[in-house]
Structures are given as structure tokens and as C-alpha cells.
Design a protein around this nucleic acid. Sequence first.
DNA 1: ACTTGACTTAGAGTCAACTCAAAGATTTAG
DNA 2: CTAAATCTTTGAGTTGACTCTAAGTCAAGT
Lengths: 146, 146
Amino acid sequence: MVNTYSIQQASTITQVSKHTLRYYEREGLLTIARTASGHRRYTDDDLGWVRFIMLLKRTNMPLPEIARFVRLEKDGHDTINKRRTMLEEHRIALTAHIAQLHTYMDALDTKIDYYSDVNNELLDCVQDKVIESNTSTNGKRNEEAV
Amino acid sequence: MVNTYSIQQASTITQVSKHTLRYYEREGLLTIARTASGHRRYTDDDLGWVRFIMLLKRTNMPLPEIARFVRLEKDGHDTINKRRTMLEEHRIALTAHIAQLHTYMDALDTKIDYYSDVNNELLDCVQDKVIESNTSTNGKRNEEAV
DNA sequence: ACTTGACTTAGAGTCAACTCAAAGATTTAG
DNA sequence: CTAAATCTTTGAGTTGACTCTAAGTCAAGT
């Protein structure tokens, strides 16, 4: 009734290496049932967890904090508010991170614009080394100052 | 005329540790002039470079690639097109990265919405453990499936 | 029955990017 | 002039997140 998968299958399905799946289990991010002989059997729920872990990881949540979240989950329904709060705080951090990247993007654009300008000047000059432009504010001296 | 700074001052100004400043120099990201006694003297240009390096780094450019960029700069004006291309490609990668983060944000929001829903249901139920909701699609079994 | 491949574990190795330590020379404040 | 602070170098240690190895057990196909 309930589908189960070997670690190999789980790895193929989730695109997470077997090594990493075992590692996550050691770190307390997963708890996987075993066969009589000790082999891991992943359920669909487990795969859902793996996917969720990957989501948190890709959005910069460190493994220990993911483990903390997982522990709360195991502690039952009375931790739901705490878990939601964690996710909401994580959401805020992610928003801030994205905003930060946008400011970096702006700085990068400024830099790229500068390079385009320099290039256009070069097209006008034809010559490679411009000796008498030392009074210009665009001289080589400050080429890389941000 | 030209301001110069000790590594301590450069560190304070740029907020980059002395250790890291020396490390960057070892890795070819910086080339800093020395006093007769061998002490580093950072110019304003150098500080500009440090800031630029930090920008590239914060936008996920690995140090070896930053080093490659710096080497091009040293090779002179004829590498300007190459450098601009590098920055433009970097910009594209950053754009893609930000877009990716947005899709993760959506997934996170979905998850948070789910938690809110579960919480509202609990408010209706009052009881902690709901035994007969096993036919519901929102039962505990799939709580974490994404 | 036997081989091939998948599974297990504990523990070691890797990588990027720092981060620190030790030993010793130099500079600066009083 | 000397003590305290700073500087240098080489090389080792740290952190997070894997990634792999070795030694051995288990399962499936012919």
C-alpha cells in the first residue's frame, strides 16, 4: 500500500546523493525506517521531507537549524506555532537576502556601465595608451575605485 | 599626496580582516606596495579594489574567478572587452540566481500557508490529537510532503 | 551456488574561504 | 631607550557541507 524505496531509488528520485542522504540522517534531518537486515526504506513522506530540506537549504538555512525544525516536527502538534514562526522568520531573512542582492546588482550595473563608457572613449581615441588624459577624472588611476 | 594606509587601517576601513587581506594578496586578488621594511601600504585605489572584490564575492563569484578578472586588469586596456564580458556574464548569473530564489520563496510561502491552515483547523478542533481525520487529505501522514 | 551489485557502518578526506599561531623584525609613544 | 603595538612570514587549524573509502553483509539473477 505505502510505497517504499531503496536509498538508491530515493537518491535518483530526489537528486540527492546516497552519501548525502545518509549524512542527513546522521545529522538528524531524516529518520528512515529499516528492513530486518538494516537497509533503509524511504517512504513517500520521507521523500517529501527530503524535498523540503532541500528547499530550506537552498534558501540558506544551515543544516543545524533545519535539524531544529525537524525535531520540532517530531515533538508533535503543539510545536506548530513555533514551526510556522521559524518559517516566517526564514522568509523574512530570505526577503532581506534578495533585497541585498538587488543592491549588489545595482553596483554591478554601475560598474558595467563604467566599462562600456571606457570602451566608447577608447573607440574615439583609437590609441591604446592615452598619456595626456591625466587631468581627466576617468583616468586609469581610479579605474577600479567603487 | 596619495593617501596610504597600514593593513590595520585598511582592515578597519574596508571591514575586511587583516588575515583576509593578506590571504587575498596570497591568492592574487590584490597586489599591495610595501615600505622599505616590508610593511604593506594600501592606497585608496587598493581600497577601491577591496570593495570591488567584496562586491563580486557577495554576488557569488568564486575567488579564483575574481583572481582571473584581476589578472586581466593588470594585462592592460586591451582586455577591457573581456572584463566587461565577464561582468556581464556574471550579471546574468546573478539575475538567474535571484529568479531562482523567487521560486523558492513561492514554495516557502505555500508551506507557510499550509501551516496557517493547519493551525486554523486546530483552533476549530480544540483537541490535540485528531484520531478520526484519517480520511482527510490534510492528515498528519502527509504533513511534510511538498 | 555463485557472482554482481547494493546495502551497511565508522571514520577519513575534500573544498572554499577563511582564521589563527608562532617566531621574529620594526615602528611608535612616552 | 624601551615597552607595547604592529608588522612580517610560513604553515597549520576551522567550518560547513559534503564525499569517499574500507571492510563487511545482503539480495537477485542465471
